[in-house]
Simulated assay, not measured.
Amino acid sequence: MRAYIYDGQPGDQRAPHDSGKPVSLEDLERLHVKAFPGIDLAKVEEIAKERGYKNRDEINVSKAGLGDIYEEKIKGFFREHLHEDEEIRYIKDGRGYFDVRAQDEKDWIRIAVEPQDLLIVPAGIYHRFTLDEGDYVKAMRLFQDEPKWVPHDKSDETDKNPHRAQFLQSIKA
Rank of each mutant, 00 (worst) to 15 (best):
A35C: 08
K21D: 09
Y6W: 14
I171A: 05
R95K: 13
L118Y: 03
R2Y: 13
D153A: 10
V100W: 03
Q13K: 14
E146L: 13
S19I: 02
K138Y: 04
D99Q: 06
L25F: 12
E105F: 10
R110L: 06
K148E: 12
F167C: 00
A112M: 07
E146Y: 10
E72A: 14
H83A: 06
G124K: 00
Q144A: 09
Y70R: 02
D156A: 13
I39R: 11
D99G: 00
F143I: 06
G96T: 01
Q103V: 07
Q13E: 11
Q169N: 14
H83C: 02
P115G: 00
A112I: 10
V150G: 06
D99S: 01
N60D: 15
P10I: 07
K73C: 08
K138L: 07
G11I: 06
R128L: 00
D117Q: 00
L119I: 01
D132C: 10
E29T: 13
E26L: 11
V113R: 02
E71K: 07
G38R: 08
H127A: 01
D85Q: 08
K154M: 08
Y136C: 00
E133G: 12
G94N: 02
V44N: 03
D12W: 09
K172G: 14
I125E: 04
L119C: 01
V121I: 15
H127D: 04
Y4R: 06
D145N: 09
P115D: 05
F77I: 01
V150D: 14
D159E: 15
V113I: 08
D117C: 02
H32I: 01
D40V: 12
F143Q: 05
D12I: 10
P115Q: 03
A3S: 10
